[in-house]
Each structure stands twice: as structure tokens, then as C-alpha cells.
Design a protein around this nucleic acid. Structure first.
Lengths: 221, 221
DNA sequence: TCTCGCCATCCCGTAGAGTGGGATAGGCTT
DNA sequence: AAGCCTATCCCACTCTACGGGATGGCGAGA
């Protein structure tokens, strides 16, 4: 038995199966045996055990893929329904500021855009949902990497840090005291000015507070 | 040892921990022991093993939460980068039709909105990202539930099925022959008419094809 | 300062869970 | 009919995972 990564060999093998399937390619049992390096009986047994929990799924074409329950579990990262309760406040933020707004969560040492509402103006920043951005650039990165100065002030701003001509302001969304997301407004420097915080911090922080209030209501239900 | 759900007891216990954490409440070890019913040493050992795989995370405040890797794994359901490659075609769809567009994936017998691009018109349908909708109503539900007539025709339409005054058209996004998502355009009946398919089916199907082409390019890299 | 209670971590002997080679059955192709 | 490849299942056996109890740390209260 090769050395265990985590100290629990069954978990190591199970996660190896999930990680192989995470490239999106659906595979039959033989392909999975080849790609995971597991003996066929072991792979078979673990696949069906994972399926019992909804983490894998065997399609009608005898090919395996990741299961829906995985998405359901992951959907609760940042708390259940974060995306659902954040949508309204983000739309109002766009109406108030005229600029695009996004919601980011930290994930694997980077940040991921989970909601994007674009400015109606023809010159606007576009960040697609699902976009993965660094933590070391941009105002949302300052928030999600826990930079003390930004958290103390309650918001962060950046000017042309991640992209030329773009400025942004972000504020933390907290749940149980921990930062679970960052609300962000971004636009061209020509409109935001080189002190975007002065212009937008108050409404960005207010949007973050509205999301926190909605999360609290959801939690106490 | 109580009866195993899946036949692999380690997996059963590990998933039990993840499911307890999926309510979004962060917990210390003692709370997790109480909520999972596992002996403390077992719970401790499995939590750290899950953390080694990124599936759980121990915060600085000694409280456990679901880990980022879970989201990364789940993000590849429907194939890696689905959200990223679909954003562009959906925006163009909104520009062409003037109506709101969404991308849905099937998940746990329902459908979940993973991208939403809203119409610039003041009267528009709003579906927040993360919204969970039924499969038995709406054009996207017809696509994702595999209704033969809809798949044969290549698109589906619905008029006031899910919501009064709203009509929609959807088309399947396929990957390796399987339907992985549905592209949808929706708006008020006053504008879409009671035959929204006649008006929009061609461009919705074209948007779905563009997403499929982008996914194929991503896969062969 | 001392005591107590509660926390997380670690140890390690052992029971039985999980292993995986090989047998089996089914389906498809030649 | 034969050959090949698939998934499933069996079960003897190995060694993994178990979990009670010991330990140390920390904070609160007397």
C-alpha cells in the first residue's frame, strides 16, 4: 500500500477518483482504473460508494461523472444561498453608482467571481462569472486576503492594479465574524477618479451590510 | 459499528462531516462531535484528513468549515470553465434579443441558474445566480429533464408555465453527447409573444452552439 | 495563585473493514 | 463459434482505522 497523503487511505483513494473526474471528461470503469491507478475491484467499489452519497454519478451510457451532491455541498461555501441574497443588493449598487458590480469569494488562494452585474454604460468593466483572479491585486483581493489595513477601514480601493484604466472599491461581507465574500464596484478611471473610495465606499459598504443582514435572516430561519 | 450507507464506512463518516458543515455554520471540534455523533478521536482524525485534501478548512478561530477544493471540484461539474466560456455568448444573446438570458444546469432533480445576464429594459425577468427552479416547469426544465420532444426539436418554449406573464425559450448545451446545461432567454409575454420560439429559437440555439464550440476548444487543449 | 473544567491532540493494541486477484457473466465484434 | 473486453462479485487475508483514555494547554473563577 503506497504512502497515505492524509493518513486515511480510503479517503485518499476516493478523492483521487473525484480529482480525475474533475477534468470534466466522463469515463467508463476501465478508463477510470487506468487514470486513477487503482485496482479495478477497488475503483468499482469506491465509485459505487461515492455514488451512494451523490458525489459521483453513473450515466446511462455507463460513464462516470461528478455527482450533483458535490455541487450542493459546494454551494453552501460562504453559507447557503449567498448568491441568491446578494443579487438584489448588487443590482441596486449598479443603479446607484452606474458602474459594474461583482461579488467574489476566496477559493484556493485566489478569488472567484460568483455574481456579476454590469453597468448599462457602453464603457464598462466586464468580469464574467466564474472568472478566477489573483488575491494580490485589486481591491477585492485586499479584502479577501485579509489585509489588516483594508479590514480596519472597512473597505479597500485600487487604481490600475489589476488592469490598466480600471479602478475599484470593495467591502467585506462577514458571516459569524469571518469574511466570506467581497462586494466590489469597478469602472474606468475616467469616471471613478483616482480616489474611487471617496466616491463609492459608503454605498459599497452599505451593499455589503445589506447582504450580511439578508444572510443573518436566512440563518435564523 | 452501525450499518454502512454506502458499504465504505470511512466514506460514510467523512461525508457525514461534510453534510453537517454544509449548513454553513462553522463549528469547533466539540460541536462537530456533537452534531455528527462520531467519537472525538475519529472526528478529529477525519477532519484533518479531509483538510489535507482541501475539503475542510480549520480557521484561525479553531472552527471548521467546508474547504475551497470542494468548490473547485464542483466548479467542474458540466466540465471545467463552463461558466467562463458561456458568459460571452449569453451577453451577445441579450444584445441580439433585448431579453434576459440565463444558463441552467441540472442538479439534484432541479435546475440551478449559474449565469444570469439581464435585459437593459426596465421591464425584464430577473433570475438571480444560485436560484433553484423546478424541472417540471419552464422551457429550461423541459431541456434538462430530457423531454424527448424538446431534444428532438432542439429547443423548447414555455408561456406562463413557471411565472405569470413570463415566456421563455431554451436550447441544450451538449458535451460528449450529453446535455450539460440549458441556455435560456426569457421576458414578458407582451414582448416575446405567445410563440416565443418563433422569435428566438434560432439565436438561442446559435448561442448554445457557440458555447459547445468553446467547450470543445477548451477540452482539446 | 491555585483549582477546575473544557478544549484539542496523540497513542497504540486490536477488531474487522477494506483490499484486490481471480472467477464469472454478459455483450459485442470478427 | 471464438475471442476479447467489459462490469460485477466473491472471500481469504492483510493491515487500516478505530476510539478510550492519557496528556497538555488554556481560560475562568474562587
Amino acid at each position: 500500500m503506497e504512502r497515505s497523503v492524509s493518513g486515511v487511505a480510503v479517503l485518499d483513494k476516493s478523492v483521487r477518483i473525484l480529482e480525475v473526474l474533475a477534468d470534466g471528461r466522463r469515463r467508463n470503469l476501465a478508463e477510470l482504473v487506468a487514470d486513477t491507478g487503482l485496482p479495478r475491484a477497488t475503483c468499482h467499489r469506491l465509485l459505487h460508494a461515492l455514488q451512494a452519497h451523490g458525489l459521483t454519478h453513473l450515466g446511462g451510457d455507463d460513464r462516470w461523472e461528478l455527482g450533483d451532491r458535490l455541487g450542493e455541498l459546494a454551494g453552501s461555501i460562504g453559507g447557503p444561498g449567498l448568491a441568491a441574497v446578494a443579487s438584489g443588493p448588487l443590482h441596486r449598487l449598479v443603479e446607484e453608482t452606474g458602474e459594474s458590480a461583482q461579488l467574489y469569494v476566496a477559493r484556493g488562494g485566489q478569488r472567484v467571481c460568483v455574481i456579476a452585474v454590469e453597468s448599462p454604460q457602453s464603457l464598462r468593466t466586464i468580469v464574467p462569472v466564474g472568472a478566477v483572479l489573483p488575491l494580490d491585486r485589486g481591491s477585492a483581493g485586499q479584502i479577501l486576503s485579509g489585509r489588516p489595513a483594508a479590514l480596519r477601514r472597512g473597505w479597500a480601493e485600487s487604481v490600475e492594479e489589476r488592469e490598466k484604466g480600471v479602478a475599484s472599491v470593495s467591502a467585506p461581507v462577514r458571516r459569524d465574524g469571518a469574511v466570506v465574500a467581497a462586494v466590489s464596484v469597478s469602472g474606468p478611471v475616467e469616471r471613478t477618479s483616482r480616489q474611487p473610495g471617496r466616491r463609492y465606499a459608503a454605498v459599497v459598504v452599505a451593499a455589503a451590510s445589506a447582504i450580511e443582514a439578508a444572510l443573518e435572516t436566512a440563518t435564523t430561519r
